[in-house]
Amino acid sequence: MSGGRTAALDDRVLPAWLRLLLTCAWLALAGCGPSPPLAPLTAGSSVLAFGDSITFGTGAAPGDDYPARLAAISGWQVHNAGIPGETADEARGRIGAAIAEARPALVIVESGGNDFLRRRPEAAVKEDLRAIVAAIRASGAQVVLLAVPKFSLLGAATGRLPDSPIYAELAKEEKLPLIAGVLAETLSDPRLKADPVHPNGDGYRKLADGVAEQLRRAGLLKKP
């Protein structure tokens, strides 16, 4: 009997449950290996900050928004494409035009807060974000998600606003860098807020510092 025949016979005599377990383990190892390190963007690179009023800078003076502060930290040319009041499904419709205008090497996506306030299903918000990610990738740019907290009465009362789980889920599914916890931590501190849902100038400074630090960890921003 040939070696190939013996191998086939041995595979058949394995219990079905064991074959399934081995197959699943192989697929998990194949899909979950360490991602290659990302190359830092050079000074002057075009970066698109895409989002809603948090990206726009509502609650702070002009120039105190987080994209402007990130530009000062990184040396990148950061385009502020934030629109107050915008939902993720609306953002989905304009991502193409924003990319065409900025021609970015990297897009930082912050969206979903207005959807949560309007009680849109989180599953629908997640799919809007997935479509935005797909459009960015199709352009050749890299994409990073900035997690947004889901506001609740309990969170407001306790001063602790956790990230909505859809961001970590989507980042894992799409193998994306995730900026986690920074916005939630900022909005959990009354001293850093202009109103219940927007940072003040100090809050945007903290947000920009946190975004920069996590971009360094992801390999996209050089360490100082």
Rank of each mutant, 00 (worst) to 15 (best):
G159Q: 04
A141H: 07
L161V: 05
V148S: 03
Q142Y: 07
D189S: 07
K175V: 11
T186N: 05
L176D: 02
P190N: 09
D128N: 15
E174T: 01
D163K: 13
A168C: 05
D189C: 03
I108A: 06
V182N: 06
V182G: 04
I132M: 13
H198R: 05
P121N: 10
A194D: 05
D115W: 05
E110R: 05
F116Y: 15
E169A: 13
A135Q: 14
G181E: 12
A194Y: 03
V143A: 15
A134Y: 02
A123I: 11
P104F: 14
A171F: 06
I166A: 04
P177V: 05
G112C: 13
K150T: 00
R120M: 14
G140E: 13
T158Q: 09
K150A: 15
P104D: 10
N200M: 04
V148M: 15
V133P: 08
G113W: 00
V107C: 08
L170M: 11
L192C: 05
E110G: 02
G140W: 14
P104T: 07
L129K: 00
A134D: 15
V125P: 01
F116M: 13
I136P: 04
S111V: 14
I108G: 01
D195T: 07
D115E: 07
G113N: 01
S152P: 07
V182K: 08
G140P: 08
R205K: 12
L183G: 00
V109K: 02
D128L: 07
Y204H: 06
V143G: 05
L146E: 11
G140I: 14
A131H: 10
R191Y: 03
L176W: 10
K175N: 12
L146R: 00
V109G: 02
D189T: 09
L187T: 01
G181L: 13
V143N: 06
